[in-house]
Amino acid sequence: MFHYFKIKGNSMLPSLESGDLVMTSNLVEIKRNDIVVFNDASYGIVVKRISSLEEGYLKVKSDNLKTDSPVCTKLHSKENIIGKVISVL
């Protein structure tokens, strides 16, 4: 299944800019270092890069080292992943 999202924020620079339109898919294998869109209980729909992945859980990171986010400090369930970013339109 494919979804489209508009990126808001600068934490994924230089990979993704605010305003970029991305396409995600949940039909592809998810691996470490993939950029994924997922649901976070506190912040809603978030886009980040997977920094580690194990036993149903993942940790994420921002690409922009100048930024920081509490989203990157906790474990997220793999079930919360909406899809992997497969294309920037």
Binding site: Y4, K6, I7, K8, M12, S18, D40, Y43, V47, D68
Partner: peptide, 16 residues
């Protein structure tokens, strides 16, 4: 088609 926003969140309580 409705396109939702995906937040590239970057915020912390203090940052200093």
């Amino acid at each position: 088609m409705k396109i939702e926003e995906a937040l590239a969140h970057c915020d912390i309580p203090c940052k200093i």
